[in-house]
Simulated scan of single mutants.
Amino acid sequence: MRPKHLLKAAWQHEQEIVAFLRDIVMIPSYSGNEEKVVKRIALEMEKVGFDEVKIDPLGNVIGRIGSGPRVIAMDAHIDTVELGNERLWKVDPFGAVLKDGIIYGRGASDQKAGMASLVYGAKIMKELVGTDGFTLYVTGTVMEEDCDGLCWKYIIDNNEIRPDYVVISEPTNLNVYRGHRGRLELQIRTEGRSCHASAPERGVNAIYKMVPVIQGISLLNDRLKSDDFLGKGSVAVTQVFFKSPSQNAVPDECTIQIDRRLTAGETKETVRQELEDIFTSSKTKAEIVSLVYEEPAYTGVVFPMEKYFPTWVLDEDHPLVRKAVESYREVLESEPDLGKWGFSTNGTVTAGLYGIPTVGFGPGNEIHAHSPDDQVSVEHLVKAAAVYALMPAKITE
């Protein structure tokens, strides 16, 4: 079948794709509570003819088609953030309302639309394109919103899959994305000595000790490096905690939470050195505290991971980027824009940690992610499915 005919085939599955997406949007699946939606996705994979469907010990649903030597993974995380202020929603966030060609609801854009398009793209691929020379895994991964990439670190470290290429279906507005900034979560702690607040001179106020550090971090943000493609790194103090015997005592410990966004060339080692330099210049004794995510999956499995999410970028002329663009061009008969996400994805592990070539293409627009306007168009769902149907064969030709 000629590539452009894949779009016609995808439109023939429009009602099925829409019904599947609406079903999984109706199922709440906050991070760590994805079991019901995982089982629903597994049923759909079996229904459309995947060769094998399994749920791994962490709770990821993994569907396989083909058995060739080249391994491609096409990923959608299927957990969502919570609702926030429900009064801001104009529709039932779990109603999966379909109106004027748009599906609304929590997770519609981020990131269940990608899952729906991937499942039906794989079905079309199996029926019309074939699987000569490759194995395709479609993964519905868990806990991304709480700790992006943890799901893939588990998959790779436990020898579930080690793909040669990864396609991430996070929303790209139907463009091809080739990277994003990384991030690092950490804390800084100062210690003092408590005493009665009526005589503060008897103690050492840990909050006061933190002040020059906070000021130094504020100034650091202004001078962080920028990258022509990824943009500027950033740093912000996002939370402040303290310990004190009472409200009438000088606090003896102060801790601040840091959100550090990493552009090209920035790593956890460079970040640590920047902070140490602030401590030195301000003559402050402070401790950097690495943070580890160790919440249980819905299966009960705990897989600890440091909250370090490396930056990743593929060159414009990388073969995977070129093949993604060619797939788009041949199916949709137009040219995609090349871009990047503003947020972070599972690519922090597949590409950032393990160096596996990774590219992004997905339905929906990231401006709707995490918002009370969470939505995706039916047109995007269908067009993404058609492109997904060609991508694996194109990538491995």
Rank of each mutant, 00 (worst) to 15 (best):
V325W: 02
S218C: 09
L184R: 10
N85Q: 13
L58K: 05
S226T: 13
T345D: 09
D56Y: 08
L98V: 12
D157I: 07
I214M: 14
V167G: 08
A286R: 02
G133A: 08
V61Q: 00
F343C: 12
A249V: 11
Q187N: 10
T172Y: 05
V235W: 00
K126A: 15
H380R: 05
N346E: 10
K126L: 12
Y165C: 03
A386L: 10
V25M: 05
S67D: 15
N221M: 07
H380A: 14
M26E: 10
D92T: 07
K394G: 02
I72S: 06
R260Y: 12
N221V: 08
P200H: 09
A297G: 15
G49M: 13
T358G: 10
D374H: 02
V313L: 14
K54V: 08
E170P: 03
A385F: 07
S169L: 06
P363H: 08
A42H: 04
D75S: 08
Q247T: 13
T80D: 03
G140F: 03
T238R: 00
E82Y: 10
A19F: 08
K394A: 09
P163E: 06
K47Y: 09
I17K: 00
L136F: 08
V38D: 02
G114E: 03
W152H: 09
A297F: 06
S226D: 13
I65A: 03
S194P: 13
V349N: 01
K123D: 05
D227F: 04
E333K: 13
I156F: 14
A108S: 15
V48A: 11
Q15S: 14
L291W: 04
I17H: 00
I124G: 00
F309R: 03
Y104R: 08
V167D: 00
G68A: 05
D373H: 13
K225W: 08
T350Q: 07
S344Y: 06
G84T: 12
P357L: 06
S344V: 15
E276R: 15
T263Y: 01
V378T: 10
S31P: 07
A393V: 05
Q273K: 14
I288Q: 02
C254R: 01
T172F: 03
F20T: 07
K8D: 13
D75T: 12
G231E: 04
L219W: 02
E127R: 11
A199W: 08
L58M: 14
D132T: 14
E35K: 15
I188Q: 01
V166R: 01
S290L: 13
W312Q: 06
D92C: 06
V325L: 04
W312M: 11
P171T: 12
T135H: 06
I356Q: 03
D337L: 10
C195E: 04
R189M: 15
S327Q: 06
S29Y: 01
K285C: 07
V302C: 11
I278P: 00
S246W: 13
V61K: 01
T396A: 07
K225T: 12
G179R: 02
